[in-house]
Amino acid sequence: MNRNLGQSSLRRKRRAADPMAAFDGLPQPLRRWVAQAALPWSPASVRRVWSKSRARGLSEDEALLSLTKAEARTLASDRHSTDFKLNSMT
Rank of each mutant, 00 (worst) to 15 (best):
A72E: 02
P19R: 04
S42R: 06
L30W: 05
K85V: 06
M89R: 13
R32H: 13
S59V: 07
S42T: 11
R47S: 14
T90C: 07
D83R: 14
F23K: 03
D18M: 02
R14E: 11
S42C: 04
A63S: 11
R14Y: 10
D18K: 04
L67Y: 00
S51A: 14
D24V: 01
F84K: 10
A16L: 14
R12M: 13
A17R: 15
L86W: 03
H80F: 15
W33C: 04
R73N: 12
A72C: 11
S51D: 15
T68H: 01
W41G: 00
E60P: 05
R15D: 05
W41T: 00
P40L: 07
A70H: 09
A35I: 02
A17T: 14
D78E: 07
W33K: 06
F23T: 01
A55Y: 13
S9P: 01
A70Q: 07
R73I: 12
R3H: 12
N87M: 15
K69E: 15
A22V: 04
S77C: 08
N2E: 15
A22T: 04
S77W: 06
S8V: 06
L65P: 01
A37M: 04
G25N: 06
W50A: 01
T82M: 11
R79V: 12
L30T: 04
N87K: 15
S8N: 07
W50C: 02
S45Y: 00
M89P: 03
A22F: 05
Q28D: 11
G57I: 02
E60R: 07
